[in-house]
Protein backbone atom coordinates (compact mmCIF):
# COMPACT_ATOMS: atom_id res chain seq x y z
CA UNK A 1 0.00 0.00 0.00
CA UNK A 2 1.52 3.33 -1.04
CA UNK A 3 1.65 6.26 1.35
CA UNK A 4 -0.38 9.31 0.36
CA UNK A 5 1.66 12.21 -0.98
CA UNK A 6 1.80 15.38 1.07
CA UNK A 7 0.49 18.41 -0.74
CA UNK A 8 2.30 21.44 0.75
CA UNK A 9 -0.30 23.92 -0.55
CA UNK A 10 -3.15 21.95 0.94
CA UNK A 11 -1.18 21.55 4.16
CA UNK A 12 -0.63 25.32 4.35
CA UNK A 13 -4.27 26.04 3.57
CA UNK A 14 -5.41 23.64 6.27
CA UNK A 15 -3.03 25.18 8.78
CA UNK A 16 -4.35 28.64 7.92
CA UNK A 17 -7.91 27.40 8.31
CA UNK A 18 -7.11 25.88 11.71
CA UNK A 19 -5.47 29.13 12.81
CA UNK A 20 -8.54 31.08 11.75
CA UNK A 21 -10.79 28.75 13.72
CA UNK A 22 -8.54 29.04 16.75
CA UNK A 23 -8.49 32.84 16.51
CA UNK A 24 -12.27 32.87 16.29
CA UNK A 25 -12.62 30.53 19.29
CA UNK A 26 -10.29 32.70 21.28
CA UNK A 27 -12.17 35.90 20.57
CA UNK A 28 -13.80 36.86 23.87
CA UNK A 29 -17.58 36.95 23.76
CA UNK A 30 -19.06 40.21 25.00
CA UNK A 31 -21.32 39.45 27.94
CA UNK A 32 -23.61 42.02 29.51
CA UNK A 33 -22.66 42.72 33.13
CA UNK A 34 -26.08 41.70 34.45
CA UNK A 35 -25.87 38.36 32.63
CA UNK A 36 -22.40 37.81 34.00
CA UNK A 37 -23.65 38.53 37.53
CA UNK A 38 -26.53 36.09 37.01
CA UNK A 39 -24.15 33.39 35.76
CA UNK A 40 -21.86 33.90 38.74
CA UNK A 41 -24.84 33.69 41.13
CA UNK A 42 -25.87 30.45 39.49
CA UNK A 43 -22.36 29.06 39.72
CA UNK A 44 -22.19 29.95 43.40
CA UNK A 45 -25.40 27.98 44.02
CA UNK A 46 -24.01 24.91 42.21
CA UNK A 47 -20.86 25.02 44.27
CA UNK A 48 -22.70 25.12 47.60
CA UNK A 49 -22.07 22.18 49.94
CA UNK A 50 -25.80 21.40 49.94
CA UNK A 51 -25.76 20.53 46.26
CA UNK A 52 -25.75 16.79 45.47
CA UNK A 53 -22.36 16.84 43.78
CA UNK A 54 -21.87 13.15 43.10
CA UNK A 55 -25.30 12.73 41.55
CA UNK A 56 -24.65 15.81 39.39
CA UNK A 57 -21.40 14.44 38.08
CA UNK A 58 -22.95 11.07 37.30
CA UNK A 59 -25.83 12.71 35.48
CA UNK A 60 -23.39 14.89 33.49
CA UNK A 61 -21.38 11.92 32.29
CA UNK A 62 -24.50 10.07 31.24
CA UNK A 63 -25.80 12.83 28.95
CA UNK A 64 -24.74 11.90 25.40
CA UNK A 65 -24.81 15.46 24.03
CA UNK A 66 -22.71 16.74 26.90
CA UNK A 67 -20.20 13.96 26.39
CA UNK A 68 -19.94 14.74 22.66
CA UNK A 69 -19.47 18.44 23.41
CA UNK A 70 -16.75 17.65 25.93
CA UNK A 71 -14.99 15.45 23.38
CA UNK A 72 -15.14 18.24 20.80
CA UNK A 73 -13.67 20.71 23.28
CA UNK A 74 -10.82 18.27 23.93
CA UNK A 75 -10.17 17.94 20.18
CA UNK A 76 -10.11 21.73 19.72
CA UNK A 77 -7.79 22.17 22.69
CA UNK A 78 -5.51 19.45 21.34
CA UNK A 79 -5.44 21.06 17.90
CA UNK A 80 -4.68 24.42 19.50
CA UNK A 81 -1.72 23.02 21.40
CA UNK A 82 -0.48 21.20 18.28
CA UNK A 83 -0.64 24.32 16.12
CA UNK A 84 1.01 26.52 18.75
CA UNK A 85 3.79 24.04 19.48
CA UNK A 86 4.32 22.43 16.09
CA UNK A 87 2.75 24.93 13.70
CA UNK A 88 4.70 25.39 10.47
CA UNK A 89 4.50 29.18 10.39
CA UNK A 90 5.91 29.57 13.92
CA UNK A 91 4.43 33.09 13.68
CA UNK A 92 1.22 33.57 15.55
CA UNK A 93 -1.52 36.11 15.03
CA UNK A 94 -2.08 39.09 17.27
CA UNK A 95 -5.02 37.26 18.85
CA UNK A 96 -2.47 35.39 20.92
CA UNK A 97 -0.93 38.45 22.41
CA UNK A 98 -1.35 39.28 26.06
CA UNK A 99 -4.49 41.05 27.15
CA UNK A 100 -2.75 44.41 27.43
CA UNK A 101 -0.91 44.00 24.12
CA UNK A 102 -3.69 43.18 21.76
CA UNK A 103 -2.75 44.90 18.54
CA UNK A 104 -1.43 48.00 16.90
CA UNK A 105 -3.31 50.98 18.29
CA UNK A 106 -3.02 54.68 19.01
CA UNK A 107 -2.16 55.40 22.65
CA UNK A 108 -4.16 57.99 24.56
CA UNK A 109 -3.02 61.59 24.54
CA UNK A 110 -1.14 63.64 22.01
CA UNK A 111 1.94 65.84 21.94
CA UNK A 112 2.57 68.66 19.52
CA UNK A 113 -0.31 67.62 17.27
CA UNK A 114 0.98 64.06 17.01
CA UNK A 115 -0.42 60.93 18.59
CA UNK A 116 1.70 57.97 19.60
CA UNK A 117 0.80 54.68 17.96
CA UNK A 118 1.94 51.43 19.55
CA UNK A 119 2.78 48.94 16.81
CA UNK A 120 2.58 45.31 17.88
CA UNK A 121 3.56 42.18 16.02
CA UNK A 122 3.45 38.72 17.57
CA UNK A 123 6.42 36.65 16.45
CA UNK A 124 7.98 34.79 19.37
CA UNK A 125 10.49 32.95 17.21
CA UNK A 126 11.66 35.88 15.11
CA UNK A 127 15.13 37.19 15.71
CA UNK A 128 14.64 40.64 14.17
CA UNK A 129 11.52 42.67 13.39
CA UNK A 130 11.35 46.20 12.05
CA UNK A 131 8.60 48.57 11.04
CA UNK A 132 8.33 50.21 7.62
CA UNK A 133 5.75 52.63 6.33
CA UNK A 134 5.02 55.95 4.76
CA UNK A 135 6.03 57.61 8.03
CA UNK A 136 9.64 56.39 7.76
CA UNK A 137 10.04 56.48 3.98
CA UNK A 138 9.73 52.68 3.88
CA UNK A 139 13.24 52.51 5.25
CA UNK A 140 13.85 49.09 6.82
CA UNK A 141 16.68 50.41 8.99
CA UNK A 142 14.77 53.29 10.49
CA UNK A 143 12.58 51.62 13.08
CA UNK A 144 13.75 48.34 14.57
CA UNK A 145 11.18 46.97 17.05
CA UNK A 146 11.94 45.78 20.57
CA UNK A 147 10.93 42.44 22.02
CA UNK A 148 8.27 42.53 24.72
CA UNK A 149 9.12 41.48 28.26
CA UNK A 150 7.51 38.06 27.81
CA UNK A 151 9.40 37.54 24.54
CA UNK A 152 6.32 36.85 22.43
CA UNK A 153 5.61 40.17 20.76
CA UNK A 154 7.59 42.97 19.16
CA UNK A 155 6.70 46.54 20.02
CA UNK A 156 7.42 50.07 18.93
CA UNK A 157 5.82 53.39 19.87
CA UNK A 158 5.86 55.90 17.02
CA UNK A 159 4.57 59.49 17.09
CA UNK A 160 2.39 60.04 14.02
CA UNK A 161 0.51 62.98 12.61
CA UNK A 162 -3.27 62.60 12.23
CA UNK A 163 -4.22 60.78 9.07
CA UNK A 164 -4.08 57.46 7.27
CA UNK A 165 -0.75 55.67 7.39
CA UNK A 166 0.27 52.59 5.42
CA UNK A 167 2.79 50.23 7.00
CA UNK A 168 4.17 46.73 7.15
CA UNK A 169 6.57 44.67 9.24
CA UNK A 170 9.84 43.10 8.16
CA UNK A 171 10.30 39.83 10.01
CA UNK A 172 13.73 38.26 9.56
CA UNK A 173 13.96 39.81 6.11
CA UNK A 174 10.42 39.07 4.93
CA UNK A 175 7.60 41.57 4.58
CA UNK A 176 4.50 40.79 6.61
CA UNK A 177 1.28 42.79 6.93
CA UNK A 178 -0.26 43.32 10.35
CA UNK A 179 -2.80 40.49 10.81
CA UNK A 180 -4.81 42.58 13.27
CA UNK A 181 -5.16 45.74 11.16
CA UNK A 182 -7.09 46.73 8.05
CA UNK A 183 -5.38 45.90 4.78
CA UNK A 184 -4.39 48.81 2.58
CA UNK A 185 -6.75 48.59 -0.35
CA UNK A 186 -4.32 50.37 -2.63
CA UNK A 187 -1.63 47.70 -2.80
CA UNK A 188 -0.12 48.32 -6.19
CA UNK A 189 2.90 46.08 -5.89
CA UNK A 190 1.41 42.69 -5.13
CA UNK A 191 2.48 42.67 -1.49
CA UNK A 192 -0.19 43.64 1.03
CA UNK A 193 0.33 46.36 3.61
CA UNK A 194 -1.76 47.50 6.55
CA UNK A 195 -3.40 50.76 7.54
CA UNK A 196 -3.51 52.64 10.81
CA UNK A 197 -5.64 55.72 11.17
CA UNK A 198 -4.62 58.39 13.62
CA UNK A 199 -7.62 60.43 14.63
CA UNK A 200 -7.36 64.17 14.99
CA UNK A 201 -8.59 67.42 13.68
CA UNK A 202 -9.19 67.76 9.95
CA UNK A 203 -5.74 67.61 8.45
Amino acid sequence: MSRPEIDPERDTAESAAIERVIAELRTPVAVRPEWRAEILRGAAKLASPDAPASRGVRRWTLRPLTAIAAALVCVVLGATIAVVVLGPGRRSSSAEVLANLTSTMPLPGEHGGQSTVRFVFVAPYASRVSLVGDFNRWNPSAMPMRRSADGRAWLLDVPLAPGRHVYSFIVDGDLAPDPAAPRAGDDDFGVPSSVVLVAGAKS
Binding site: Q114, F135, R137, N139, S141, A142, V158, A161, G173, L175
Partner: peptide, 23 residues
Protein backbone atom coordinates in the same frame (compact mmCIF):
# COMPACT_ATOMS: atom_id res chain seq x y z
CA UNK B 1 15.25 44.72 1.51
CA UNK B 2 18.85 44.18 2.53
CA UNK B 3 19.93 46.68 -0.14
CA UNK B 4 17.39 49.17 1.07
CA UNK B 5 18.60 48.69 4.62
CA UNK B 6 22.16 49.48 3.63
CA UNK B 7 21.22 52.55 1.62
CA UNK B 8 18.82 53.76 4.31
CA UNK B 9 21.18 53.60 7.27
CA UNK B 10 22.11 57.24 6.88
CA UNK B 11 18.51 58.35 7.29
CA UNK B 12 17.73 55.98 10.10
CA UNK B 13 18.96 57.85 13.13
CA UNK B 14 17.41 61.13 12.01
CA UNK B 15 14.05 59.46 11.47
CA UNK B 16 14.16 57.57 14.74
CA UNK B 17 14.76 60.78 16.64
CA UNK B 18 12.64 63.13 14.62
CA UNK B 19 9.50 61.03 14.20
CA UNK B 20 7.46 61.16 11.04
CA UNK B 21 8.06 64.02 8.65
CA UNK B 22 6.22 64.07 5.32
CA UNK B 23 8.31 62.80 2.44
Amino acid sequence: IVGAMLSGLAQASALAQGGAAPM
